[in-house]
């Protein structure tokens, strides 16, 4: 379905388009090689949510998930993109099933990488059980695909970030690329504040929220393997690079990851703020990190960021 044009903005141009501002369809079309995308279960098939009608809520023809196949730098890839503006990119039954199906196809193909363009607040509350099941099925499908030899990359830079079950799925990926706007977490700031109190986490303190959940912190602690400036071209370069360098999932991957997480907890567990972590990490001026331009930050991260051992 390469005929389907993205919504909202002009068709022309590529490189400088903001990832954050782009629609899911626009990201897919501009990320992949020009004209290479073929959609599976496109909007004209009207596979919409079976639940939203019950709540008198509007549906979207693609249920906020675009899946298909294309090429990246000449190599075949499977791709899934969430539309963060439709219900916060949340996982519902159909939305999740499209990604599960894509990952199972990747598992059976064994060598075609999968790119997941996350943009989600987590499970769609109106489809709670179906959404939670979808998250579990997707996590299993990611691991099965990786076990079969498939590289599963997550790209995070959308307006809804990557939270809730989306954060869990991201944690199962082979590697992640993130932009400064691409927040990754499980519980969002408001949820933490509601459950643990404002002393634990003040969701109104935006600088605190951004330096705790934002892409720069994720990159510096090794939770993300690459940092992208907020353009489609930067994400494309990161994806090509990660596809070249990401290794297979083995028992050693998991052992290394376990050791890394234990060491991270020992070393940074007592830190009260992301800035304390960065300072311990070896960043001279931790207070300046949030203001650093992307290029300077990428250079800094290259010097001090923790090796990821191919796992979160």
């Amino acid at each position: 379905m390469s005929d389907l044009t993205p919504g909202g903005t002009s068709e022309s141009g590529r490189g400088g388009v903001s990832w954050y501002e782009a629609s899911a369809r626009q990201r897919v079309r501009l990320l992949l090689d020009a004209g290479s995308f073929t959609e599976f279960v496109g909007p004209e098939q009207r596979e919409t949510s079976p639940h939203l009608q019950v709540f008198d809520l509007p549906e979207q023809f693609d249920d906020g998930m675009v899946v298909g196949a294309g090429t990246l730098g000449g190599g075949a890839v499977l791709v899934a993109a969430q539309e963060g503006r439709f219900m916060g990119g949340a996982f519902g039954e159909v939305h999740g099933a499209k990604l599960t199906g894509l990952l199972r196809a990747a598992r059976d193909l064994t060598s075609t990488p999968v790119l997941i363009l996350f943009d989600t607040g987590g499970v769609r509350l109106q489809e709670a059980n179906a959404g939670e099941l979808a998250i579990a099925e997707i996590m299993r499908a990611v691991v099965e695909a990786r076990h079969a030899g498939v590289t599963v990359l997550g790209l995070v830079g959308g307006r809804s970030g990557c939270f809730g079950g989306g954060g869990l799925i991201a944690g199962c990926c082979s590697a992640l690329a993130v932009s400064e706007q691409g927040r990754i977490g499980v519980s969002g700031p408001e949820v933490i504040e509601t459950n643990r109190g404002v002393e634990e986490f003040d969701s109104k303190d935006r600088p605190l929220v951004w330096r705790t959940t934002g892409g720069k912190h994720r990159r510096l602690i090794g939770g993300a393997d690459a940092f992208a400036d907020d353009t489609v071209d930067a994400f494309r370069a990161c994806a090509l690079d990660l596809l070249r360098t990401t290794g297979p999932l083995t028992l050693d991957t998991l052992r290394n990851e376990q050791a890394r997480l234990r060491e991270r907890l020992d070393r940074f567990g007592a830190c009260a703020d992301a800035r304390d972590v960065w300072a311990k990490r070896g960043v001279d001026d931790a207070g300046a990190v949030p203001g650093l331009p992307a290029d300077d930050f990428i250079a800094l991260a290259g010097r001090v960021a923790e090796p990821s051992h191919d796992a979160r």
Binding site: L4, G8, F86
Partner: peptide, 9 residues
């Protein structure tokens, strides 16, 4: 034959 524009928000 077809096109899709906009988003449900």
């Amino acid at each position: 034959p077809l096109a899709l524009v906009g988003v449900v928000a």
